[in-house]
Design a protein around this nucleic acid. Structure first.
Lengths: 198, 198
DNA sequence: TCGATTGCTTACTAATCAGTAAGTAAATAT
DNA sequence: ATATTTACTTACTGATTAGTAAGCAATCGA
């Protein structure tokens, strides 16, 4: 076996399965995606998918874990390439522009809606994702000028971070109609960003 | 037949079916609720449910239509019993306190997540619900002091209304963990209300 | 070169899905 | 009193669900 790199090494097929699963779940929800759907999309058998991910819980957990890692990289990139709160929040909002344009939602936003039917491991990953976001946004906001001065009711950067995250996830949900959804999504969030980074 | 009242008259069983369906969908999502689940919950057969609602699309449409009517009444009650923007928004936010405490979400928030798999008629009702909310919030905000002065980036009451709705739907989604979810939900929205109604 | 492992396929299973047909007991209408 | 309608039940159907068992060709390690 060659240079066994850090964990996360996956076969080409396993990666394709995760890609297809994530795409379908973001557009249709957890319970509307079956092994049969994935098999059809990838020209595989359902058994082949069970070979890579024995149960749907395994697939779901791997899918969200990978989503969290990718998202962490994207946030790190935003932090290193920008300097102001406004730039950072704007680019953070735009992280979801592509999925939204294709009719999808934040993976964990969709999964949170299906929360009660999720395997425990998946639910834990989803909660972890939201914690990641809140922590990151809190640190971004804490570095800028005092956000509690702009948002009257907010007693801490963390509270403002929670509001901002809620606004993003909610704006994707409420602006899901085909027409102009992306503009409406951006407009809602710009409204909040301008207040925060006045 | 006795005094055929205004439309919306439904048999006792049909009402019980809608109650159970709404409760289950709010907690589990559209695709995780089957006729079998409802039959078990209500001690009926699935055929009995098909008698009242021939297809799942019929059930879904009736469920959301009733939700919209109930919600319209609740909003009208808030408007007539309060006078300030702050009171109105606070009570509007609290409309979801009970469902949230029981592990549920706004019915249309859940359905928006399942959007791609929804029958057309249901999708139309869900979109109608969001339009209702935006219209109502817009008129509430327009009656108060100029909200575009408090929220820097907002160019109109409507834009502020869209942000507020997004924040509510999103806060339910992100604060779905059992512990203290209701307090966190309220805190996030209070933060926005205090800014809007400063 | 040979045995084991990897990455699949074919062929299942039992459960569950939405939906239907036919029958029935009770209430209602004439 | 009789016919009809209402509100169901029993008993299905064919499709789809997640998941399994067994087999097989190619690759890999010794």
């Amino acid at each position: 076996m060659e240079g066994s790199a850090a964990e996360g090494e996956r076969s080409h097929t396993a990666t394709r399965i995760l890609d297809a699963a994530q795409d379908l779940v973001q557009r249709r929800g957890y319970n509307a995606v079956s092994y049969g759907d994935l098999a059809a999309e990838l020209d595989l058998t359902t058994a082949a998918i069970h070979y890579h991910f024995p149960s749907k819980a395994d697939l779901g957990e791997a899918m969200v874990a990978r989503y969290r890692r990718t998202n962490a990289d994207e946030r790190a990139a935003i932090r290193s390439r920008t300097n102001t709160v406004r730039e950072r929040l704007t680019q953070y909002v735009d992280l979801y522009a592509d999925v939204l344009a294709e009719g999808g939602l934040c993976l964990c936003g969709v999964l949170a809606a299906d929360n009660a039917t999720l395997p425990k491991a998946v639910r834990r990953e989803v909660q972890g994702f939201f914690d990641d976001q809140t922590d990151w946004l809190t640190s971004i906001l804490a570095e800028g000028t005092d956000v509690t001065a702009q948002l009257e009711g907010c007693e801490s950067p963390r509270q403002a971070a929670e509001l901002f995250l809620a606004a993003i996830e909610g704006a994707m949900l409420t602006h899901r109609t085909p027409r102009n959804q992306l503009n409406a999504y951006r407009a809602s969030l710009r409204c909040l960003i301008d207040t925060i980074a006045a």
